[in-house]
């Protein structure tokens, strides 16, 4: 006698939680809880099963129109297929980098990609200055161009160990290991409690962990 198993209709881009769990630090139940969060974020403006840039901005800033260089970079890195939206699998795989159990090396690599604005394989001096200026624009901190130059110059001279005017992945790794606070924002302790935050996943769960 077969057992009756009903599969609910899933949104486009939905991926099997057991596959996502196998590829990430999340349990199957945690992936299902992340799906509850994903459904909320991906339906906040256009209910089509994808997180659009405006929905991402709305979740981060409570403002769908607030452009921010760093949010743009995070969105682009989450959008692994580069099709302009974040799908569920991309969301889970990318958030996996921010899990407390993810190796530091993976976090360091992700941060490097974030800061390598032009994706040249190096963080260049101009990129670093652009990022400092962008940060100042979103904060209340006002610094003169001279002070910005000093900060950038000092940081660059510390990180660019080979002194060739650009920071490569190896130099970045060494620099972060000396200054671990630089990747503090690459860990979200919240991800360990995701099933507590979204207990409604139980209603839609297809497995028992």
């Amino acid at each position: 006698m077969g057992c009756y198993h009903s599969k609910k209709a899933k949104s486009p881009g939905y991926e099997d939680p057991s596959i996502l769990s196998a590829e990430t630090p999340f349990t199957v139940n945690e992936v299902e809880a992340l799906h509850e969060l994903f459904k909320k974020l991906s339906s906040s403006i256009i209910d089509d099963g994808f997180i659009h840039k405006e929905e991402f901005q709305l979740a981060l800033f409570r403002n769908r129109n607030k452009r921010n260089l760093f949010a743009d970079r995070v969105f682009d890195l989450f959008d692994l297929k580069r099709n302009g939206v974040i799908e569920f699998g991309e969301f889970v795989r990318s958030l996996g980098v921010f899990h407390p159990n993810t190796p530091t090396e993976d976090k360091i690599t992700f941060a490097f990609k974030l800061y390598d604005l032009r994706q040249t394989g190096y963080i260049e001096r101009e990129e670093l200055k652009d990022m400092v200026v962008a940060l100042l624009q979103e904060s209340d901190l006002v610094l003169s161009d001279e002070v910005i130059e000093i900060i950038v110059h000092k940081t660059f001279s510390e990180a660019d160990a080979k002194g060739d005017g650009r920071i490569d992945q190896e130099e970045w790794k060494e620099f972060v290991l000396k200054n671990p606070s630089l990747i503090k924002n690459m860990t979200l302790p919240y991800l360990k409690d995701i099933t507590v935050a979204f207990p409604s996943f139980v209603l839609n769960s297809e497995v028992e962990d």
Partner: peptide, 26 residues
């Protein structure tokens, strides 16, 4: 002059755009 001693990457890491914990706020 405090800001001059700042690490540029440390400054950048405080961006709201890099603070993904906001995604989980109800």
């Amino acid at each position: 002059m405090a800001p001059v001693t700042m690490n540029a990457f440390e400054l950048i890491s405080t961006s709201q755009g890099l603070n993904l914990s906001s995604l989980f706020e109800k």
